[in-house]
């Protein structure tokens, strides 16, 4: 058996991966964090984080990540820029293939590849992405000053970002296919109190219409009535899809949505492989539990490495 280059490779630098990196660096493991763009993950899509403890006034998604990265760097966490395209995890030496064909090897791997906003899958969506179809209200909201926009979805992200968009847009219509919202009561209360936010419940999007840019959405009420809502922008905030293209899903026993199940110590079904953050099969996807999972996983990695020795 050839020896592994690293004790631990952490794949993905969102809150879960960065916290794992912090704990790994402080535990003096020979670890590297691999990130395809720059550190961040989905929290970068959030304008303001009001529920991460320790920041009584709240903090921007970007600043929170910046602080997490700086904290891990202070303890010497090594990070590497690049995309992992394949993982061979079953042997004691785990082998990761990068997009340039090079390979990294480690005794243990923490998968923190996260998730991304889900596509709705209606005609016009792909063609008009970036031309009125958006998955990030924080990024694109300012393009919609004094315009009318639609938000698709009924969860926390949809309802909270609808309120955020009223800073720019004259009117924001939240379109949800069910007859009630899934968002928490406090989020709903903020949205209901905002006179620029309107709701179209029991309504599904049939297609997004526009030539050089979005001109409106074709809708169908659950009782069969069809209508057209003219809007300049459509924000798709309907949940997340796992970033799992590089993972051996069968070996990891992925659930039917493609997320990875673990035990309470973040161990997957493969020895020496942990999964943390939004890629994990779980109900609650918050920054605070992503961070907690990163810490737990490193303790499980340390235990695993001790058994190997």
């Amino acid at each position: 058996m050839s020896s592994a280059e690293y004790d631990l490779i952490i794949v993905g630098g969102g809150p879960a991966g960065l916290t794992a990196g912090l704990y790994a660096a402080r535990a003096m493991l020979n670890a590297v964090l691999v990130e395809k763009g720059a550190v961040g993950g989905q929290v970068l899509l959030t304008d303001w984080v009001d529920n991460y403890p320790g920041f009584p006034e709240g903090i921007s998604g970007f600043e929170l990540i910046d602080k997490m990265a700086a904290q891990a760097a202070r303890f010497g966490l090594k990070t590497m820029l690049g995309s992992v395209t394949a993982m061979d995890l079953n042997d004691p030496v785990k082998r990761l293939t990068m997009e340039d064909g090079s390979q990294l090897t480690a005794k243990a791997v923490i998968i923190s590849t996260g998730a991304r906003p889900k596509q709705l899958g209606v005609p016009g969506e792909v063609e008009l992405t970036g031309k009125g179809v958006s998955y990030c209200a924080t990024c694109d909201g300012p393009f919609y000053r004094n315009r009318e926009v639609a938000v698709i979805g009924g969860g926390n992200t949809a309802v909270e970002e609808a309120v955020f968009l009223t800073r720019f847009a004259d009117k924001v219509t939240v379109i949800h296919r069910r007859n009630e919202l899934r968002a928490t009561k406090i989020s709903q209360k903020h949205a209901f109190a905002n006179e620029k936010v309107h709701f179209l419940l029991d309504t599904q999007v049939q297609s997004i219409v526009g030539k050089d840019g979005v001109e409106g959405v074709q809708l169908k009420n659950n009782n069969g009535e069809e209508s057209f809502l003219p809007v300049y922008g459509v924000f798709m905030l309907i949940g997340t899809a796992p970033n799992n293209e590089m993972l051996p899903l069968d070996d990891l026993g992925a659930d039917s949505y493609g997320f990875i199940p673990t035990d309470g110590e973040m161990r997957t079904s493969i020895p020496g492989v942990m999964a943390v953050g939004d890629i994990r099969s779980k109900a609650v996807r918050q920054v605070v539990n992503a961070a907690g999972e990163g810490a737990v996983a490193v303790l499980a990695v340390e235990e695993y490495l001790q058994q190997l020795a």
Partner: peptide, 12 residues
């Protein structure tokens, strides 16, 4: 400057 993903691809 207010766009997180823009900052994320900056190093690329």
């Amino acid at each position: 400057p207010w766009c997180g993903p823009c900052k994320a691809i900056g190093p690329v």
